[in-house]
Design a protein around this nucleic acid. Structure first.
Lengths: 221, 221
DNA sequence: GCCCGCTTGTGAACGCAGGAACTATCTCGC
DNA sequence: GCGAGATAGTTCCTGCGTTCACAAGCGGGC
């Protein structure tokens, strides 16, 4: 499930606050979801809770680290060292979560050999060897859209089964590989869409609430 | 719907290739979704297609620009100029999609006054005035997690109704505001989760398919 | 040792998104 | 002008995720 990392972060906060146990309701509040959902999600990992008490924070964290691959320190390679790629290479959050950025590759000869975030940029043609030598498990694509599919194919061919795509492009991978995408411009466009709707609604009537035909039902937030 | 921007990008590609009309099947292939979904999504905007022919690329793009707020060039403010914030400020994709980054703010006095991507960083206390003067509609939060909720509150108070949160933190906004979040570490953890499952499955048997107790049912992938 | 309250874990119902199938309508050919 | 092919728009149905509700089990109090 995609919510496990959020629980993980909540549990980490609780542990840092020296909280020994947490109930599903607490976790639900922290993660911004329903309590039943928390219980069902966590039961998917196994029965690590104690009825009448809650979940042991430390123990549950240990189990989640194992499941989320944090314990293994899965290596990451970033492909494409443009503005975004460089920022990602310098982003500390990855290493802190158990995903050390261990290699950088690009196809631009002028970038190969430069050092970013303490790591030397290598040519993408060396990808196979890099992945083998460093045990890379995850690839981050931050190339232009036109190169994304080719890079994805190369990553898969090199044995990288998990890909995070930042390029604004729809790419496909074999069924036995994982693909997630983050499209920054799309996120803004989605926000723009709702913003636009709000604006046009506000233009019709100065009062944002209670459209004319609305009945007396209380405006539940 | 969250898929409209993807259709928008596909349509832009078609227009650049001088394609006049596109069928829902074409668009579906480009966007990597089902054709029925494309038709349903587009019909949500209105009946802009012609039966037996398809969709007029130019006209549909015009309508989508209007709906997605691209036509309005909604201004963006980036709050928090760490590694990620600076990268986002330098990211060209926003302006290209009609969302010009028009202001940068931070709470660190040593950052205020510096120029990033041609824009002078201002103090967050000036947020109200900045939003008013520049007509900012969208706020991007790239602060540490601890500051995210406070920044969100300030943005909403200043009249920014659309927020994109990059901080690894669950934040809440009033019901009349939009919130989307991008958590880079979480994305990796999700990939790590599936990777971990693949690895442990591979460790049990070299053949990834047909677990021992599997019956004769064909292994549907 | 037993009872009671609390909390997990899970079965069942609900709602929504996705996909297939159908209908309506347009273009082209004859 | 009419029929055939094609394609948008719509309806229905299936499946999944979410939520509610209840049973199971643990700990504390007396």
């Amino acid at each position: 499930m995609a919510r496990l990392p959020v629980y993980h972060r909540s549990l980490t906060e609780l542990r840092d606050a020296n909280v020994a146990t947490a109930s599903s309701e607490q976790l639900a509040a922290m993660a911004g979801v329903n309590a039943a959902k928390v219980r069902k999600d966590l039961s998917y990992l196994g029965s690590y809770g104690t009825r009448g008490v809650g979940y042991d924070v430390q123990y549950l964290l240990f189990q989640m680290d194992r499941e989320l691959g944090r314990a293994s320190d899965l290596g990451v390679v970033i492909v494409g060292l443009g503005n975004l790629g460089r920022a990602l290479a310098n982003y500390d959050g990855f290493g802190e979560k158990g995903f050390p950025v261990s290699a950088l590759v690009d196809s631009d000869p002028t970038k190969v050999g430069t050092v970013i975030a303490g790591i030397e940029v290598r040519h993408i043609d060396d990808l196979d060897q890099i992945v083998r030598d460093l045990g890379i498990a995850i690839g981050i694509i931050s190339t232009p859209a036109s190169a994304a599919q080719d890079v994805a194919d190369r990553l898969v061919a090199a044995g990288v089964g998990s890909i995070l795509n930042f390029a604004p492009s729809v790419i496909s991978v074999p069924g036995d590989a994982s693909l997630r995408k983050v499209d920054l411009a799309v996120e803004l466009q989605i926000l723009g869409f709702y913003q636009q709707r709000r604006d046009s609604r506000a233009a019709l009537g100065t009062e944002p609430e209670s459209p004319p035909e609305a009945s007396a039902s209380a405006g539940g937030g």
